[in-house]
């Protein structure tokens, strides 16, 4: 059993309207010193077996196919320790 994390973030050049709204809300709540916020998605993928190279290759394929839209988003795959 292993847990693999897929983080999906908008590509840097894509306007993140939600992230901007969050950044604008922070000073109103008394949080200062934040220059920008970008919002993304985190997927926790539980595997039946170990996170070997074959399994990770499958997860990357899942991310490319469904979890991320690679037209607008980048993703990273990491194995949770």
């Amino acid at each position: 059993m292993a847990r693999v994390i897929v983080d999906v973030m908008l590509k840097p050049e894509i306007l993140d309207a939600q992230g901007q709204a969050i950044a604008r809300a922070l000073p109103r709540l008394g949080f200062s010193g934040v220059s920008a916020v970008r919002q993304g998605k985190r997927f926790e993928v539980e595997l039946d077996g170990p996170a070997d190279e074959a399994a990770l290759s499958d997860v990357r394929k899942m991310a490319e196919t469904l979890l991320a839209n690679t037209v607008i988003e980048d993703f990273t795959v990491t194995v949770e320790e």
């Binding site: 894509i14 306007l15 309207a17 939600q18 037209v71 607008i72």
Partner: peptide
């Protein structure tokens, strides 16, 4: 079709 549709700029 190319491209994507995202959250309206004004939310």
């Amino acid at each position: 079709l190319p491209g994507a549709l995202m959250r309206n700029a004004g939310l």
